[in-house]
């Protein structure tokens, strides 16, 4: 077990180094950043000064090593746009919004998907089951911006219950983006819960519990649900990572001032230090959530401890 965890941590760090190196290199191949920073007719002296100021006169591996060193300490460099403010400031201002949105979406998808997954498993082949399948199929087929816009249109524009965008209306403003972000996962978690419940419902101990005359509600929630929970629960962990990156799209749809919005803005301005930092930060979350889930899963389910 310890060996497995150790190997997974090494693996995660390696993946992160490779990814950050790729992103760093990609950001450089677009050409000399100085050309983007300065007007074309800048004097060679000014160019030299700017180069030195941003550390661009060093070989690329030195730049990379320095960047990673600073990154680990929470110093992400300065943005080219936004008047050269420190990127860490931009990120600290926006990260809470993204985390708030993603956690809301996470709670929503768990609160909706788990009970419905159980319901459609218990009522297999009933109209509930069919409705569940339709919801799941739609979740697979609609891009998240489509779900977001349709929700916005119905609940904000036509019914006028909720604000169309931004996050200045308190709890009301997180509802639509949260649902839009959580929707895809509702479908996935529901399917997983259903199949996992069906498996458990078919076991001998559940049959025994029923033969004993245990009330059906107790059979389902006490005996089945707890055992069926392992798979969807691990998946819910993975979803944390998916939700964070999925927020890039939803934040754009709802003009939600988070990290995804910042990333898209930076891409429009070709502000590479910001793109680089946000992407590497997202990748870090993504990889470490995956790592955490893998370890938790190995702990919960000893059968998968390979290697």
């Amino acid at each position: 077990m310890q060996r497995y965890i150790f190997l997974r941590i090494i693996q995660a760090i390696l993946a992160l180094l490779v990814i950050s190196a790729i992103v760093f290199a990609l950001a450089r191949v677009t050409g000399d950043p100085v050309a983007i920073l300065l007007p074309e007719d800048a004097s060679p002296k000014v160019v030299e000064q700017v180069r030195a100021k941003w550390g661009l006169d060093q070989p690329i591996y030195v730049q990379y090593a320095r960047y990673i060193g600073n990154f680990v300490q929470g110093d992400f460099g300065q943005a080219w746009a936004y008047g050269g403010v420190p990127i860490s400031e931009l990120i600290i201002r926006r990260l809470p919004n993204t985390i708030y949105l993603a956690s809301f979406a996470w709670v929503v998808s768990a609160a909706i998907a788990l009970p419905i997954g159980v319901l459609v498993a218990v009522k297999k082949d009933s109209p509930f089951d069919w409705a569940g399948k339709v919801v799941a199929l739609l979740g697979q087929s609609a891009p998240s911006f489509a779900i977001g816009l349709l929700l916005m249109w119905v609940f904000a524009v036509i019914l006028g219950w909720l604000p169309t965008s931004g996050n200045d209306a308190g709890f009301k403003s997180v509802l639509l983006p949260g649902m839009a972000l959580g929707y895809y996962n509702v479908a996935a978690v529901m399917r997983l819960t259903r199949s996992s419940m069906l498996e458990v419902l078919d076991t001998e101990y559940v049959k025994l519990a029923r033969i004993k005359g245990m009330p059906e509600r107790k059979v389902i929630w006490k005996h089945c649900f707890r055992n069926a929970l392992i798979v969807p629960f691990t998946y819910m962990g993975l979803i944390g990572a998916v939700l964070l990156t999925g927020s890039v799209v939803i934040e754009t749809v709802f003009v939600w001032p988070g990290l995804g919005d910042l990333a898209i803005d930076a891409i429009r301005n070709r502000d590479f230090p910001v793109i680089q930092s946000v992407v590497i930060l997202f990748a870090t979350f993504y990889i470490f959530i995956n790592l955490f889930v893998d370890v938790a899963y190995a702990y919960l389910n000893p059968r998968i401890r390979y290697n």
Partner: peptide, 15 residues
């Protein structure tokens, strides 16, 4: 597969 696809896509498009 460890890299979130939408982010990879965005970086590449930016480049």
């Amino acid at each position: 597969l460890a890299f979130p696809s939408i982010l990879l896509a965005l970086v590449l498009v930016a480049v």
